[in-house]
């Protein structure tokens, strides 16, 4: 019985190691040369910053909710 429990623990350990080592091998799955569509200006978050400031101001003045809008980086993920 104890042997079976130990075997189960070993199997669990092996599974955990395999899973974790798998994680370590995860590589960026979208290569730089595959990001042409993401780099298109139409994919930018907030393409016109001055207009976006105005949109945010209009909303913040008339709604209770604020914050967490927009995104950092974007487009080709270059920043």
């Amino acid at each position: 019985m104890a042997y079976l429990q130990n075997k189960r623990k070993l199997l669990l350990l092996a599974f955990a190691i395999a899973t974790l080592s798998g994680c370590a091998n995860i590589e960026p799955w979208v290569k730089p040369y595959e990001r042409d569509k993401l780099a298109d200006p139409i994919m930018g978050f907030g393409r016109h910053p001055a207009a976006l400031q105005h949109v945010t101001h209009v909303r913040d003045s008339r709604e209770a909710a604020k914050g967490a809008s927009g995104a950092g980086g974007g487009g080709c993920g270059c920043n």
């Binding site: 979208v30 595959e34 990001r35 569509k37 993401l38 994919m43 978050f45 927009g70 995104a71 950092g72 980086g73 974007g74 487009g75 993920g77």
Partner: peptide, 11 residues
Amino acid sequence: TQILTTNWIAA
């Protein structure tokens, strides 16, 4: 912000 696929980006 995460690039998810060649067509999809999310934040």
